[in-house]
Nucleic acid binder design. Sequence first.
DNA 1: CGACGCTGTGAAAGCGCTTTAACTTCCCTC
DNA 2: GAGGGAAGTTAAAGCGCTTTCACAGCGTCG
Lengths: 354, 354
Amino acid sequence: MGNGMTGKGRVTIREVAERAGVSMATASRALSGNHPVPAATRARVLRAARDLDYVANAHARALVGGGRKMAAVVVRQVTSPFYAQVAEGVEAEAADRGWLCVVGATGGDAQREMEFVQLMREEGARLVILVGGVVEDDAYRERVAHYAHALDSSGARLVLCGRPAPGPDVPALVVEFDNEAGARAITGHLLSAGHRRIAFLGGLPGNTALDARVAGYRAALAEYGLPPEAAYVVDCGLGRAAGLRAMSALLEETREFTAVFAGDDMVAAGVLRAVAEAGLTVPDDISVVGYNDIPLAEDFNPPLTTVRTPAEELGRAAVRIALRDPDSAAGSHHLLGTHIVVRRSVCAPSRSCG
Amino acid sequence: MGNGMTGKGRVTIREVAERAGVSMATASRALSGNHPVPAATRARVLRAARDLDYVANAHARALVGGGRKMAAVVVRQVTSPFYAQVAEGVEAEAADRGWLCVVGATGGDAQREMEFVQLMREEGARLVILVGGVVEDDAYRERVAHYAHALDSSGARLVLCGRPAPGPDVPALVVEFDNEAGARAITGHLLSAGHRRIAFLGGLPGNTALDARVAGYRAALAEYGLPPEAAYVVDCGLGRAAGLRAMSALLEETREFTAVFAGDDMVAAGVLRAVAEAGLTVPDDISVVGYNDIPLAEDFNPPLTTVRTPAEELGRAAVRIALRDPDSAAGSHHLLGTHIVVRRSVCAPSRSCG
DNA sequence: CGACGCTGTGAAAGCGCTTTAACTTCCCTC
DNA sequence: GAGGGAAGTTAAAGCGCTTTCACAGCGTCG
């Protein structure tokens, strides 16, 4: 390497100080910029640091400095396009501020989630972002309330993305998309195309995001003067496999529906597949819409009409909001807008069905 | 919370020790398990820690303990399905060992990559995994050689996944898929189906992964006794947009090809789209194969025949290999196997062409 | 001209933890 | 019954850094 490195042992600030002919205190000030130092002195210190290939020890710094700039984002799995985008947003916004971003994948396991949050407490993360829908039961509420208080007592902030706050007095902040509005809009799109028999596939009772989508779907139906019985919700949960299975079952059972609103794009992928396997065509026989507008949605067959939820923006917003209003932000609730992306999976209800 | 927390200030091991009636040393040993402690004493300490909601300070621990269990994985972008899977594999394997995993996204920018590696040095990461193909030029070689030596001098290991080592004496370890074998196999699949005019779309000269794929493609052609001129490589780079553009251009130009080997599945997505836009059908008019088998490949239209590169396994292998053989592993090169996944985007060359 | 504030600098305290070296018991052996 | 370990425990050193506190030098104002 050709520099003055002392073998394996890391160069410390003391050596930098010695080489620059100043005290450790001055070296520290020049390096960290926490305190003004005359330009000449600073230059000498920086020079010495460069010559020695000095690398600050983040641990020592965090230990004395009390904490460190680190955010953690926790998702079910990194490979889900939606979660990946949110994580990317968090990472980007964190990086913009010089923060470190660590991501944890739980695989949907509450145990691992708890362990990870605990780890983040030990690591001194100042921001923990929990992403993704869950079924809201008592265990969930208790768990999250615990996180919130534990993190709060360590001086860290907790952000919930797309999952509910366990209570009004819990020190956590919620940032999510306006699922009800989005669902209402896309259902309206189907209705205005002439569809009246629209099934919703992908319900997951207790999951607030999906519940809100279902609510929006029902609201849109009501707005069009349809009776509550017109709503048909299949609680098959999320994922491509679930969508495939549920749609196959539905087609087996009845062909009265002219359109399907899939709970998200992966469900829609399964639905499209099921329709194709049944020898039917989208949209001629059945119109399909999804939710989230994942990157590959436009490559579906046919390209999917869906609701765009700018996931990366969600991640960025989470960081921004949490860091903006250090105190007042706690407990607040932020809703992000969405919009419809029209592609080719919807047309007017046709010849073949009701 | 109902426990004995002292407000904001974090509970330290000293308080735990006091409450348990032992010295800090004993408390530390009971908590960390680094040194045997009688069961009765240990129980008292653990009890006190629980009562106080004690959270160890990872920084202090790392400071004195010299380093910490942390791995870093660096990718171009988290939202690419392939990178996401690799990152997930790294995360999983790291989590299995109680290691922390941080991920950095560079957006393909060398500057950001350097900053991130530097940050990891400061943070004391013991394992840095650089994932993803690059164009191998002098700047690249110099950069990576620098990382390798810098990390090595901090006692950390460097793993390159799918990118070449800059030289034989550089302390880095390479783990990647056997791209040449995979490409040879899938080209063979096309050949054995009867295709003789096969174009390769998605070359990126200097990118070793793609170069290897191209080499495999040529080798397969040669094995079937075709002259070198039979190879037709379009260096359009990667990504869906690139595939769409290149394939549209190709179709504009000539229709002599009966099959297309796309550099990866995203390119294949673009190719499929281009074929559809040209009013042609896959596989009846043109057979298409991809590379990587991303999760949505089976939902392409038609479901894509491709090469499965178990990306998550790549991430896991990177961690495992790096951690297995602390010393001997340096400089070694590991090749992971792949296999063909046959779906419906290939059939015998047909009526319409060649 | 002495008191005051300012800037630049350094010695040393201490962040929370692990670990070394030393000490105390207590039990066993010769 | 004295000597030698083993087992259990502790005081204290110190990881690398930031930051207080103190002091020196010096221009400025009353």
